[in-house]
């Protein structure tokens, strides 16, 4: 196992220069995610157009894995409807948690998250933004916590 497997260049890049970082004004939906273990805290804003993700942004603070995961997610989910997002989320979840899961070529940049599964303590960091966006789309409006 190599650290560069976890901290791939694309992850370090998205950590340093997170994309779609900022807020979206109402009527965008906001949902908060919190990882009490490490203090990661982020807010995901999403603009839905008849159930399709039109615009998505995030803000907050966290480790490189959580920031990069959120940043890459915002790039990947624009234009997806709820069902397509759920399918992608399921793929990411498998990549993060299943040792033998194939990393689908269709994931593109997101495949960089594949190193995380070798670090069980860091899976929650990578999944926080995804779970928070899921909550936002479901309109739960309640805070998401990893614990």
């Amino acid at each position: 196992m190599d650290l560069k497997d976890l901290y791939r260049d694309v992850i370090l890049d998205h950590n340093k220069r997170p994309r779609n970082f900022g807020v979206l004004a109402a009527p965008a939906i906001a949902a908060q995610g919190h990882n009490p273990l490490c203090g990661d805290q982020l807010t995901i804003y999403v603009d839905l157009d008849h159930g399709t993700i039109k615009e998505v942004r995030f803000e907050g603070s966290g480790c490189a894995i959580s920031v990069a995961s959120a940043s890459m997610m915002t790039e990947a989910v624009k234009g997806l409807d709820a069902a397509a997002f759920a399918a992608l989320h399921a793929q990411i979840h498998a990549v993060l948690t299943q040792h033998d899961a194939e990393v689908p070529a269709t994931l593109g940049k997101l495949a960089a998250l594949g190193g995380v599964r070798e670090y069980p303590a860091r899976v929650k960091c990578a999944s926080l933004s995804w779970r928070t966006l899921e909550a936002a789309i479901a309109g739960a409006g309640t805070a998401v916590t990893t614990e």
Partner: peptide
């Protein structure tokens, strides 16, 4: 430029065990 959590993982890779987080003293 480095979140403590990343620091903890990188140090662990080099055998150095430290605690990262809020230390139950938020």
């Amino acid at each position: 430029g480095i979140h403590p959590h990343d620091l903890g993982t990188i140090l662990d890779e080099r055998g150095v065990a430290i605690r990262t987080g809020h230390h139950c003293a938020m």
